[in-house]
Measured scan of single mutants.
Amino acid sequence: MTYKAILNGKTLKGETTTEAVDAATAEKVFKQYANDNGVDGEWTYDDATKTFTVTE
């Protein structure tokens, strides 16, 4: 399944996708990606669109 992350960081804005077996696995991948890029904020998840959003 393909999951998407939308990054609304102070220094990084954009989107990325990952293939994962479930939302929990995708969330770990996206949170690591955000952390590696200095983005730390509030996370939300929309199951209907399989989209995570982080906003700083």
Results as ranks from 00 to 15, higher is better:
residue 24 A to F: 10
residue 16 T to D: 03
residue 55 T to G: 05
residue 37 N to P: 01
residue 14 G to F: 15
residue 32 Q to M: 10
residue 46 D to F: 04
residue 8 N to C: 12
residue 33 Y to C: 09
residue 5 A to R: 00
residue 26 A to D: 01
residue 10 K to Y: 11
residue 26 A to Q: 01
residue 1 M to E: 14
residue 26 A to E: 01
residue 31 K to I: 08
residue 52 F to D: 01
residue 5 A to W: 12
residue 36 D to N: 08
residue 15 E to F: 14
residue 52 F to G: 00
residue 20 A to M: 02
residue 44 T to M: 09
residue 25 T to G: 08
residue 10 K to R: 11
residue 42 E to P: 05
residue 33 Y to K: 03
residue 10 K to F: 12
residue 55 T to M: 07
residue 43 W to H: 00
residue 51 T to A: 03
residue 20 A to I: 01
residue 3 Y to E: 03
residue 22 D to T: 05
residue 37 N to K: 12
residue 27 E to F: 15
residue 43 W to V: 03
residue 38 G to H: 09
residue 13 K to V: 09
residue 3 Y to N: 03
residue 25 T to P: 02
residue 43 W to L: 03
residue 39 V to S: 01
residue 37 N to C: 13
residue 53 T to M: 09
residue 14 G to N: 07
residue 27 E to W: 15
residue 19 E to N: 13
residue 5 A to I: 15
residue 4 K to P: 04
residue 54 V to F: 15
residue 6 I to W: 04
residue 47 D to V: 09
residue 35 N to W: 15
residue 40 D to P: 04
residue 40 D to G: 09
residue 2 T to M: 12
residue 45 Y to R: 00
residue 54 V to Y: 08
residue 39 V to Y: 10
residue 46 D to V: 05
residue 35 N to V: 14
residue 42 E to W: 11
residue 28 K to A: 13
residue 55 T to Q: 07
residue 7 L to F: 15
residue 26 A to C: 03
residue 7 L to V: 09
residue 1 M to C: 12
residue 46 D to I: 04
residue 9 G to W: 06
residue 1 M to F: 15
residue 40 D to Q: 13
residue 41 G to P: 01
residue 20 A to L: 02
residue 47 D to L: 06
residue 22 D to R: 01
residue 1 M to R: 12
residue 56 E to D: 07
residue 24 A to T: 10
residue 29 V to R: 08
residue 46 D to T: 04
residue 35 N to P: 01
residue 53 T to C: 09
residue 24 A to N: 07
residue 48 A to T: 12
residue 50 K to E: 02
residue 38 G to L: 06
residue 54 V to M: 14
residue 41 G to E: 00
residue 17 T to W: 14
residue 8 N to L: 13
residue 45 Y to W: 03
residue 17 T to V: 10
residue 19 E to F: 15
residue 4 K to D: 04
residue 26 A to K: 00
residue 23 A to S: 10
residue 48 A to N: 11
residue 43 W to K: 01
residue 15 E to G: 05
residue 15 E to Y: 13
residue 33 Y to P: 00
residue 27 E to D: 04
residue 22 D to N: 09
residue 40 D to Y: 15
residue 29 V to T: 10
residue 49 T to S: 11
residue 51 T to I: 06
residue 4 K to S: 06
residue 24 A to D: 10
residue 13 K to Q: 13
residue 3 Y to W: 05
residue 51 T to F: 02
residue 11 T to N: 13
residue 6 I to V: 11
residue 55 T to I: 09
residue 52 F to E: 00
residue 23 A to Q: 11
residue 48 A to F: 09
residue 41 G to L: 04
residue 25 T to R: 06
residue 32 Q to D: 07
residue 12 L to W: 15
residue 47 D to W: 08
residue 55 T to E: 06
residue 46 D to P: 01
residue 5 A to H: 04
residue 2 T to Q: 10
residue 34 A to P: 00
residue 56 E to L: 06
residue 28 K to Q: 12
residue 26 A to H: 00
residue 31 K to V: 07
residue 17 T to G: 03
residue 13 K to M: 08
residue 8 N to G: 04
residue 19 E to H: 13
residue 6 I to C: 06
residue 51 T to L: 04
residue 3 Y to V: 02
residue 36 D to E: 13
residue 7 L to D: 02
residue 44 T to C: 09
residue 4 K to R: 12
residue 43 W to A: 01
residue 33 Y to H: 04
residue 51 T to M: 03
residue 37 N to Q: 12
residue 15 E to T: 13
residue 25 T to W: 07
